[in-house]
């Protein structure tokens, strides 16, 4: 019960920050899509604060509205005020390495709460984030106005890209409910036998990398491939879920290293660095990616069983 209240509290806190982002987005007169962007954040705020009370079908319709707003280019980051450079360099001198203290507090307190209590990871992260913010506020002696401003700046900068991981996880749940995983599993098991552990691990890791190469996004591949191959071919043979899932995701990252679809990582640097070869970054990553993928198969097989 206590943890239930606490997680509702943290989701509401998140919702309030989203509402703040919405208010500031609407105030940004330079943004031609300021109304749509404001609505985007307000709908999210509503879903995070009152999600448990709103009928699920209405929440679903609101999610659909989020998608339509983005589809019709009505969500834009807009103009966000730059960081005050003089304050930044003043405190960089004053605090130096101590600026990393809040992050260390966050990591340590989240690990402590996570391992000493049975409240679950969400509460641990919430408590860690709160403590870290307090430490940061004390050491920077920042006025509340500045905290408010930095929060809205960070949230607005994230935009739809920041919400994408949750949407991909949602898609995974929907795929599972619609039986997509079972269908793919059936197709795959027509071609490969399910009984062999090493074959299962190999199949899963390679499928994660391949799907990521095609889609350019390991997060998107994870839900589909884990439901379709990871669970029936590895976990169902007695593989440890945490090993399979954790290494499955990074097996996907091996695919990210070699795909031009992951433009942010592999194409943008080519442009930034004024390189001649479009494949210059990928070529440097390819040998390591192949070795890492093989090591993923070996290590998953050893650790999971």
């Amino acid at each position: 019960m206590f943890t239930q209240y606490l997680s509702t509290f943290f989701y509401s806190l998140l919702g309030i920050c989203m509402a703040i982002a919405g208010i500031e987005a609407i105030k940004d007169k330079s943004n031609p899509a300021r109304i749509g962007t404001g609505f985007f954040w307000f709908i999210l705020a509503l879903l995070f604060i009152f999600g448990d009370l709103i009928p699920k079908a209405i929440s679903g319709a609101l999610v659909l509205v989020l998608g339509l707003l983005s589809l019709f280019k009505q969500v834009k980051v807009g103009k966000i005020a730059e960081i005050d450079a003089s304050r930044a360099s003043e405190y960089a001198k004053k605090l130096g390495i101590w600026l990393f203290l809040p992050s260390i507090v966050l990591a340590l307190s989240a690990i402590l709460v996570g391992s000493l209590t049975n409240w679950g990871g969400q509460i641990a992260i919430g408590i860690g984030a709160a403590l870290a913010l307090i430490v940061a506020m004390i050491e920077t002696r920042a006025p509340i106005k500045l905290v408010y401003n930095d929060t809205q700046r960070m949230f607005r900068t994230m935009g739809t890209a920041g919400m994408l991981p949750q949407m991909l996880a949602m898609l995974g749940s929907v795929f599972t409910a619609a039986g997509v995983g079972t269908l793919v599993a059936k197709a795959v098991s027509g071609a490969f036998p399910t009984g062999n552990k090493l074959l299962g691990v190999t199949l899963y890791c390679i499928a994660m990398a391949l799907f990521t190469i095609i889609m350019g996004n390991a997060f998107a591949a994870f839900a589909v491939i884990t439901a379709a191959i990871g669970v029936p071919f590895v976990i169902a043979q007695g593989g440890s879920p945490v090993v399979v899932a954790t290494l499955g995701m990074t097996a996907g990252y091996c695919g990210t290293l070699v795909t031009p679809m992951a433009a942010n990582f592999n194409s943008l640097p080519v442009a930034f660095l004024e390189m001649k070869d479009q494949w210059g970054v990928i070529k440097q990553q390819l040998p390591i990616a192949v070795i890492l993928l093989v090591l993923h198969i070996i290590l998953m097989y050893i650790l999971a069983f």
């Binding site: 943290f10 989701y11 806190l13 998140l14 920050c17 989203m18 995070f48 999600g51 960081i83 005050d84 304050r87 930044a88 360099s89 003043e90 405190y91 960089a92 001198k93 605090l95 600026l99 990393f100 809040p102 992050s103 966050l106 990871g121 969400q122 992260i125 919430g126 984030a129 709160a130 870290a132 913010l133 940061a136 506020m137 920077t140 920042a142 500045l146 905290v147 930095d150 929060t151 700046r153 960070m154 949230f155 994230m158 920041g162 919400m163 991981p165 949750q166 996880a169 949602m170 995974g172 749940s173």
Partner: peptide, 22 residues
């Protein structure tokens, strides 16, 4: 799947240390 977006909770702190010269 709301928990996936929990990483946003870290942003106010990151924003604050960033505006102080991180």
């Amino acid at each position: 799947n709301r928990m996936v977006s929990l990483y946003f909770l870290v942003l106010p702190m990151i924003g604050l240390v960033e505006s102080h010269g991180l």
